[in-house]
Design a protein around this nucleic acid. Structure first.
Lengths: 155, 155
DNA sequence: CGATATCGTTCACAGCTCGAATGATTCAGG
DNA sequence: CCTGAATCATTCGAGCTGTGAACGATATCG
């Protein structure tokens, strides 16, 4: 099958052709660009702040422990993230009346709007990154990444 | 076309479905796992050390400035990376006789072997990550990532 | 020959994240 | 009801990574 007429494949031997390598480098450029897009908001937001809003926006309200577990970070980090988001008026901290140790975080309407802006920035970046792909290629990419995330045990 | 019978698509609205998000998270898990694989070597290697070897292994020898530019890091960082690799006997530092300011780095035969081991680890990780993909899906993924890297101006 | 630029190196510092300690609160068991 | 253990949020100190500003050596240009 792949004999003489395959001039494009295997032109790069070595680690550069590896999945881990490509995912790593592309992952960093993607988050770097997203970070810069967030910087344009002048709100001191980092991708992790957005991750908090994403979790809160998707499901119900969550305690900081749950946030930390779902994000795979230390609970102490969630404190500072929530501090900042609360200061921006994007999330609300309420003591759980049934368990007054828990701080229940909810996304405010302002937070919802902010999350929408972040999503818009993300989608704009998507189009920019995937400008060289056909619709079919992009669909295949989405599906493949979904499977990879599944395999890695990600949500 | 997409009316009643599309229960699988668009089930996740929001940023989670975004390319930047998926690439970011998958990129971190990929490099995290690669870092752990390198840790198993007990040589104090980090992905950036491997990146140096990759660049040296692909093209000709390079000065540290060129390394830094190609990797997108500060020249001062290349110093410590090269220090460590030199201590391991993986690279050799030679003053360029035509310009004695430049340190020309070359991959030794030991370095070549070490790079091969890193590549093997990377490919093993690849198979692990892409275990849930068909051959066609994986090929499509490779091609799509190649196009993305192109679009982002990466090598 | 002198001024300026470049390379590698060192060093201090900022950013990010974690883990241990702390205080408040809840829960289990006698 | 009381006491000890567990859990949550928070603070704080420490580690790791990477950068940018010096600095000395060398090269280049006038």
């Amino acid at each position: 099958m792949s004999d003489v007429n395959s001039p494009r494949t295997d032109q790069l031997p070595g680690l550069t052709a590896t999945l881990v390598f490509k995912l790593g480098t592309l992952g960093t450029v993607a988050t770097d660009r997203f970070t810069r897009a967030l910087d344009a908001f002048e709100l001191g937001l980092k991708p992790k702040h957005v991750a908090v809003m994403v979790v809160l926006g998707a499901g119900a309200a969550a305690s900081q422990q749950e946030l930390a577990a779902r994000m795979g970070v230390a609970p102490s980090l969630v404190v500072s993230l929530a501090d900042h988001l609360e200061q921006l008026g994007a999330v609300q901290r309420v003591r759980d009346p049934h368990d007054r140790r828990r701080q229940v975080l909810t996304l405010t309407s302002d937070g919802r709007r902010l999350l929408d802006r972040c999503e818009a920035a993300g989608r704009a970046l998507d189009d920019e990154l995937a400008a060289g792909l056909t619709v079919a290629q992009r669909a295949a990419l989405d599906e493949a990444l979904r499977l990879l995330a599944n395999q890695a045990g990600l949500p």
